[in-house]
Every structure is written in structure tokens, then in C-alpha cells.
Write a protein that binds this DNA or RNA. Structure first.
Length: 568
RNA sequence: CGGGGCGUAGCGCAGUCUGGUAGCGCACCACACUGGGGGUGUGGUGGUCGCCGGUUCAAAUCCGGCCGCCCCGACCA
């Protein structure tokens, strides 16, 4: 990568106005600062400055992974369908998997991830247990045909990801590598200098084992995390366990039935009967994995956690809600008046709803609700499960305090895969005792291109991006306010050379632009250190130094400015 | 895929309701002034009005279909 560039000879197409296509800060700023350009939905071209940021992240990732013995390889984007059929994912993956056919009518996938290819590699190349554990990774373009690409680079269809895979004979070995990758990701994000949080995560369809996400904190993040300020507990809300509440010691009232004409929602019922929504019970009808329909019961003030619900074996994954007609067909009663008491469907009740006393719920008769409803007496057949989202203020699962919420952008995700791929793809080795054993695997993803946007999302102000020095496209931005002035040009040129000699990455704005343009664009680009060379202060032999993150400006000699930056 | 919004010059927009010469700001080119926070003036360049079809003497404008983009939802190793 070139250390130094002149702005007059570099493609930096800045925009004064926000393009209509962009909404979120990172997308707006990366477009305006000339880092990226959109080609089509979810597809972007990386321009020189954007690419420099991405390359710097790559370099940091490589260095940190090398410390833990991970080996870099590169696998093809285009992958034969046969491998995907072997793992079973050819049929399981939906349209998100981009499929294509070659001239011989053979099927291929555009790799969204590389478990199949890497598993195939290892079974062909590793002959003895003495060659493992093995930890390999690549940094490569991934393709996922997202339903809705959005937020610029944050949810693109084609993106750069570091994906790593490890292979082990036993859990203890997998645990060690998993921990190493956990530590490596932590080191990478610390070194880059973003605020982040590591949270327990749901492994989704990729595995059933332990899993952690690395979330860059940002208000605009798509992920919601629950954490306990008093302890280390932190989990994606998808995953965060809701504790079982103490059962109520209230005496159960007798069941009553009241007319509730026209009331359809919990809010309607709570207002009409003047009860707390926490004393209302809602019943959701979802598609069953085999049978027709399943009822899920929650307290009125709680939300269904679809990830948890989808993990109930009788519930079809992903969770699919019955529509109005299907509810009526399944229960004989329209949405708004259904309830768990006497319902002729399998019923699962959330722990909190089961613990609530004397509740209101639908009577399974249009326009009527029951009062004084108690799980233990009135629908005790229902199995008690954890299927709700935790809420702010809930007791932390470790009992150390109350949960608080934060939003984040997922930039890393590590999984223990177990034998999910090694068994169907017959990846086995003889262990030391000569017993043929399926290997177990770990998988470690890190979104390089997404991190570029996540950092911009977190590190910006009203004027533009404020890059951390670790990944800024350049470290120093020299502005020659009037390059046509021979004195300014001479001073700026020699300052430029001095920065190069000092080993700095420097962008030199030598263009014939007005000062205001140069200042505004400099703020937009977000290079950490700015040195302004103008005729006015140069008359006293001085230049102006300013950090992008600060408001303070100081006048220094050129040599002082360089050493100031060098010692930063 | 469901709901909403949008598509007119490289970018940001007006004009569409009520059919009749395609406009404004920025950018770009030339010249002059200016020169420490997106400067001023004068003169220019640049548009199949997303695409296809229909109605009409006449369509950016009305009608039908399609495509694309953005937002919300669903979805998401």
C-alpha cells in the first residue's frame, strides 16, 4: 500500500449533499467522503480511501490471528453443489444461497460461508490425528442473496469476511481454540479502538453449541443486547434467559367470564377491564413442526422470543404465525378472544405467565374473556417454558442485578459446530487408540467490510467520520491552502517529504481548491492529524496542527508538527 | 414477499393534481475577481423526464404493465 498520495491525483469523489439512496450515518458518510459507490442493491465498489481502511483492518486481523497459530488459506467463491448436498444444506438453505449452473448444466453455489469446502479439504489432506488441532482461515468475498440488503455496507449481499475453521479430536481441544479465537477477536477490536461488547449468542442453524457474538456498540445497530452492569453477563436478547419468577402467593380467585365486545388487543382488554397488562395473558397460534397448530402463552406485557420458540421441538422453525382465518379454523374463535383454558391444542406457557396469578385471558368465545385465571389450576396441562424476550429491569440470569439494554452491530461470531459437518461429510480420523472418530469443529466469522461501516457508525460527528488512527486511510492530512503560492508550495512539499521520511501515511491536498473546501473535506474524510500550510502563518514560519477528534488548533513549526504526530 | 415512499442533467430537487417551449441549486467548462471553513460575478456544456405499451392533435404530466431504489415488517453462517 502506498504510504503517500497527492489528492490531486487520487480518486476521492466527495459529495456535498446526502445521496437519496442513503439513510444511516455510516452509509451517508462513506458515500459522501468518496470511500465507496453503489453498483446495485447491496453491491459496492471500494474506492481508494475505503479500500485502504479495509486493508488496514485485514492487516490487523492477520497479525492477531497469527499470534494464535491460525493459518491463512483461500478457497473458491464458486463451490460445487455436490458438497452442499453432502452436508444437506443444498436443500435446507433457502434462496439466500445464490445458485448457478455452468455450461455443462452442473450446479454451483456462490459461497455464503465455507464449512463444506473446508471440511472437504481437511478430509483430503489430513491423514493423522497428529496433524490436528488445525486452525485455518481465509479473508474472502462472500455472497448472500439477502431478502433486503440495507444500511449500505452493514447488510450487503457481497462482502468481505474473515472466516476461520478449526478441527479437533476432543472437546478440550476445541475449547482451547475457541478461547483463543475469542481472545484474538477481543484483541483485534481493542487494537482498532472501537467500543464493543462480547455477548452470548444463539447459534442459529449453524450449530447447537456455545456461541459468542462481538458487537460494536451503535444506536443504529440491528442487534439488541441485554447485559448486567454489575457482572460480566451479556447476551443477545435472542438468547438471554428469562429467570423463572417466584410463584405468586396470591389466593386464586374463582374463574369468571366477562363480555368484552370489540376488544382485540391486550391494550384494549387492559383499558376495558382496568387491569395491568401484566395480568393479561396473550395466546399466540403458531405452526407446528408436524401437527397443525401450537398455542404459545405469554404475559400481556411480554414479547415472544421467536428464537427460543423455534427451538421447541413441536414448533416449526422458523416461527410462523397463523393468520386470522387459520386461527379461527384452529380454535373456532377469532383472534382477540382466544385463551389457553380449555383450548384443544398443545399449549406452551412462558414461565412468567405461568407464575402470574388471577389473570385475564380470552374465553375462546368471540367477545368474552375469563378472569381469575391461574395456570396451575386452569390450564396445568400446558408445559412451562422460557419463550419470552427479557426486558430492561429483569433480574439478570446470574442473579447479580438488573438487565440493561444496548444496541450493537455484529462484526464477529464464533461457534462450536460439533460434528454437524464432519458426520455427514465423513470427516474422521483414528485416534491414538486406533478408534475411528468424527472430528469436531469450530467456526469463527469476522465481517471485515461490515466493520468499516460499524466503525464509521460509531466514530463520526456532524462534519464527517473520525477514524481511529489504527485503521484511518491515512494518518496525516496536509492541506496546502494556496498551492499556487510558491512559498506555500515549497513549505508544503517539504512537509510532505518530512512526513514520508518519518514513515507516516500521508494524504497531501495539493489541489487548487479554496480553503473552505479543503477544511470541509478534511473533516469529512476523518484523517486523524491535520496540518494546514497557509501563507498567513507561514510568514512566521509556522503551520497549523489540529487533531480531527479535537477542536484545539496550535501553531507549530513544520518540524514540531511532524514530531508531535510521531509521538502521538 | 406484505405495507409505505420515490424514480426529471453527475448530485440534491421543483414541475405531475389541472396535458401544450423541460426548470432551479450544486458540480463541470471558460474568463475575471477572491484566497484560513463548501466564496462572487459573467458566459457556457450537459436531460431517450426509469422502461414498454395505451389514450390524445399534443404526454414528464392521464391509464395499464414492468424494472429499479429507500424505509418499516418478515428473514438473516
Amino acid at each position: 500500500m502506498l504510504k503517500a498520495m497527492r489528492a490531486s491525483q487520487t480518486l476521492i469523489p466527495t459529495l456535498k449533499e446526502t445521496p437519496a439512496e442513503a439513510e444511516v450515518a455510516s452509509h451517508v458518510l462513506l458515500l459522501r467522503a468518496g470511500f465507496i459507490r453503489r453498483v446495485a442493491g447491496g453491491l459496492y465498489t471500494w474506492l481508494p480511501l475505503g479500500l485502504r481502511v479495509m486493508r488496514k483492518i485485514e492487516a490487523i486481523v492477520r497479525e492477531e490471528l497469527a499470534r494464535f497459530g491460525a493459518q491463512e488459506i483461500q478457497m473458491p467463491v464458486v463451490q460445487p453443489a455436490d458438497l452442499w448436498r453432502e452436508s444437506g444444506r443444498w436443500d435446507v438453505m433457502g434462496p439466500e444461497l445464490m445458485r448457478m449452473r455452468d455450461r455443462h448444466e452442473r450446479d454451483y453455489a456462490m459461497g455464503p460461508t465455507h464449512e463444506e469446502v473446508v471440511t472437504d479439504l481437511v478430509r483430503r489432506t489430513v491423514d493423522s490425528y497428529k496433524q490436528i488441532p488445525l486452525n485455518v482461515y481465509q479473508m474472502h468475498t462472500k455472497f448472500r442473496d439477502e431478502i433486503r440488503p440495507r444500511f449500505g455496507l452493514l447488510r450487503a449481499r457481497e462482502f468481505l469476511m474473515k472466516d476461520g475453521y478449526s478441527f479437533h479430536l476432543d472437546e478440550a481441544s476445541l475449547d482451547r481454540t475457541y478461547r483463543d479465537m475469542y481472545d484474538a477477536y477481543t484483541a483485534i477490536l481493542k487494537r482498532i479502538g472501537v467500543d464493543f461488547r462480547v455477548v452470548e449468542a444463539d447459534a442459529g442453524t449453524i450449530g447447537d453449541g456455545e456461541s459468542h457474538e462481538f458487537q460494536v456498540l451503535a444506536e443504529s445497530g440491528e442487534d439488541l443486547m441485554a447485559y448486567c452492569p454489575n457482572s460480566g453477563y451479556a447476551a443477545n436478547v435472542e438468547k438471554a434467559r428469562a429467570l423463572a419468577p417466584e410463584p405468586s402467593d396470591e389466593r386464586p380467585d374463582s374463574l369468571g367470564k366477562v363480555a368484552t365486545p370489540g376488544a382485540r388487543t391486550i391494550a384494549d382488554i387492559a383499558a376495558l377491564l382496568r387491569v395491568d397488562p401484566a395480568r393479561c395473558i396473550k395466546t399466540l397460534i403458531v405452526r407446528g413442526a408436524e401437527g397443525p397448530w401450537i398455542a404459545l402463552v405469554l404475559r400481556g406485557d411480554h414479547e415472544l422470543n421467536e428464537t427460543k420458540a423455534a427451538r421447541l421441538p413441536p414448533v416449526a422453525a422458523p416461527v410462523t404465525f397463523a393468520d386470522d382465518a387459520e386461527v379461527e379454523a384452529a380454535t373456532g374463535c377469532p383472534i382477540g378472544s382466544i385463551g389457553p383454558v380449555g383450548l384443544e391444542l398443545p399449549v406452551y406457557v412462558d414461565r412468567s405467565a405461568a407464575a402470574a396469578a388471577n389473570c385475564v385471558c380470552g374465553a375462546n368465545e368471540e367477545g368474552f374473556h375469563l378472569t381469575g385465571v391461574n395456570w396451575s389450576r386452569d390450564f396445568a396441562d400446558a408445559e412451562v417454558v422460557d419463550i419470552r424476550n427479557v426486558t430492561e429491569g429483569d433480574l439478570s440470569p446470574d442473579g447479580c442485578g438488573e438487565l440493561a439494554f444496548a444496541r450493537g452491530i455484529e462484526v464477529g461470531h464464533i461457534f462450536k459446530l460439533g460434528d454437524k459437518y464432519s458426520v455427514p461429510m465423513r470427516l474422521t480420523l483414528q485416534d491414538g487408540a486406533g478408534v475411528e472418530t468424527a472430528l469436531i469443529m469450530g467456526c469463527y466469522g469476522f465481517g471485515i467490510s461490515r466493520l468499516v461501516a460499524a466503525v464509521a457508525e460509531q466514530c463520526h460527528d456532524d462534519d464527517g467520520i473520525v477514524w481511529p488512527a489504527s485503521i484511518a486511510p491515512f494518518n496525516v492530512h496536509i492541506l496546502a491552502l494556496d498551492y499556487a503560492n510558491p512559498d506555500v508550495a515549497a513549505a508544503a512539499d517539504s512537509l510532505y517529504d518530512a512526513c514520508i521520511d518519518a514513515g507516516m501515511d500521508v494524504l497531501f491536498d495539493d489541489r487548487d481548491e479554496r480553503p473552505g473546501v479543503k477544511f470541509a473535506e478534511s473533516d469529512l474524510l476523518g484523517i486523524p492529524h491535520r496540518i494546514t500550510v497557509g501563507a498567513r502563518s507561514l510568514a512566521r514560519g509556522l503551520v497549523e496542527y489540529k487533531r480531527r477528534a479535537d477542536t484545539e488548533r496550535v501553531l507549530l513549526t513544520p518540524a514540531e508538527a511532524v514530531s508531535r504526530i510521531a509521538s502521538d
